[in-house]
Design a protein around this nucleic acid. Structure first.
Lengths: 153, 153
DNA sequence: CTGCCTGCAAACTCTTTGCACGAAT
DNA sequence: ATTCGTGCAAAGAGTTTGCAGGCAG
């Protein structure tokens, strides 16, 4: 999804929900879609403020769930005390995360079989799956061998 | 693992680490292993205090990582703002969680294929897997049909 | 006796919320 | 003109930590 398409989708999502298209929300959108990697709420605030200085932390926190619900962002919770987000360029993709414990990098990996698993297990319990998470925490081989984690930016 | 075995393992883990066997730690252990289901730190505090009134919140929070590291408890993070724990009766088991969004119950499900997945994906990235999490969030079919979630205790 | 362990309360981090002002429709 | 959105600062939840006294080894 190109940013222009995503922007149109965002505006459509807002109006469809009876929400307003404000400069702050647009700045937050732009800041989010300029990121190449996962980001936190605080990082998003910094970047959004670089675009529109008036953006406040509260508005970032209020906008993130709106964008997540509209499938513009994906929320990634890896069991730390803060959540990570990333632009959702393909909302149909089933993805898992591999987290490098040495450099803290999060890799998004295609995992198409995940939904099969969720359906199988849930149906046995009389449940209908809504979402799934598959995460692998791992150590860096290169770090162990050479003392440097090759993934570190 | 029967509680007596677990208790021996706990004491052994403490002494092996140069940690002391205190009444508070034993009360926390007993409280944890008396639970039939997942519990939070706060719930554990309540139960531990029923055994030894002197147990403080701080000691519970300081003991939980010790027990987790010693494989006496398993820590389950389902992306809420608090962690859940449960006695780790079989530390070799690969388990996934199915979370009922209607009654908040957490089901532990055997998922022996998880390690295969972790190894496969990690090796491509030059990483060695340490741990894995597979979680399915789901809605209750019975609730939808009859208005009552049959899993609710 | 030594030094780890403890309870208390304050601190911390991330996130949410009440309020009065401001802006989108 | 209405009503929603906003920034600010305070509150909130869960967890961690500094300190002075207490108990295990």
């Amino acid at each position: 999804m190109r940013n222009a398409d995503a922007l149109a989708k965002f505006k459509h999502h807002l109006t469809a929900k009876g929400l307003r298209v404000t400069n702050q929300r647009l700045a937050i959108f732009d800041a989010a879609f300029a990121q190449k990697d996962h980001f936190t709420a605080e990082e998003l605030l910094d970047h959004a403020r670089a675009i529109d200085e008036s953006v406040s932390r509260a508005t970032v926190y209020r906008t993130l769930p709106i964008m997540t619900e509209g499938a513009l962002l994906r929320e990634v919770d890896i069991g730390r005390n803060q959540k990570y987000y990333l632009p959702n360029h393909d909302s149909s993709a089933q993805v898992a995360q591999v987290i490098c414990l040495d450099c803290d990098k999060i890799f998004e990996i295609s995992a198409p079989f995940m939904s099969w698993y969720g359906n199988t297990v849930s149906s046995k319990l009389g449940l209908t799956p809504v979402s799934q998470r598959l995460q692998v925490s791992a150590h860096c081989d290169t770090l162990k061998a050479t003392g440097v984690c090759k993934h570190r930016a």
